[in-house]
């Protein structure tokens, strides 16, 4: 495989650069996936049937914690990629680990939130509103969960195989994924929670 040294490691082969573009296109599809969920959410938000409305069940504290954790994790993974480009494997792995820990924290709070919702009578089957709320949050949460495993696998590979075009490429693509989840969360934070509590 030809390696082009003028580019960062993660772009250095043709295959690598294909993968990065391919992943961007995948993110385009993800935009539509979440756009569909948001369309459904906005349509069903007032259709609460006999169940509670958003204003009745949302709480600001866990949401703020989640937002802060995810924003910070997005920052640390950015630093991880920066460290990777400097060739600093140790720092990169440290930043990636911090990212995953923050992600785990986010997931913990989200699971608490879900349990709480179900506990207060806002389960999946309660109404159209609760169903789309939990589906939208759940889809994002499932992405985060998937990302945690993915990130873990990458850290293991970087540890074992070192930074080479392949592992660098995987790490970079993972960082794109993670940033994207942060962007989606911003929209959930603004248009599900804040709008709901406004």
């Amino acid at each position: 495989m030809k390696i082009d040294n003028s580019l960062p490691l993660e772009y250095s082969t043709e295959e690598n650069s294909n993968k990065i573009l391919g992943f961007w296109i995948f993110l385009g599809a993800e935009i539509m996936l979440f756009a569909t969920l948001f369309s459904a959410y906005f349509t069903l938000v007032d259709r609460t049937g006999n169940g509670p409305s958003g204003a009745e069940i949302f709480e600001i504290t866990p949401v703020l914690i989640e937002t802060f954790l995810l924003l910070t994790s997005s920052f640390t993974i950015g630093l991880g990629i920066h460290a990777m480009r400097l060739g600093n494997k140790k720092a990169m792995m440290a930043f990636f680990s911090v990212t995953l820990l923050l992600g785990l924290g986010f997931l913990g709070v989200e699971i608490y939130e879900f349990v709480h919702y179900v506990h207060i009578g806002a389960g999946l089957q309660t109404s159209a509103f609760t169903a789309i709320l939990l589906t939208t949050l759940g889809t994002h949460g499932a992405h985060v969960t998937f990302g945690l495993f993915w990130g873990l696998f990458i850290i293991l590979q970087v540890k074992k195989r070192g930074l080479n075009p392949e592992t660098a490429n995987k790490s970079f693509i993972f960082s794109l994924y993670w940033h994207f989840l942060d962007v989606v969360w911003i929209f959930i934070f603004s248009f599900v929670y804040l709008k709901g509590m406004m």
Partner: peptide, 8 residues
């Protein structure tokens, strides 16, 4: 209850 006739 996304598309059903009950509960919104």
């Amino acid at each position: 209850h996304f598309f059903t006739t009950t509960n919104g």
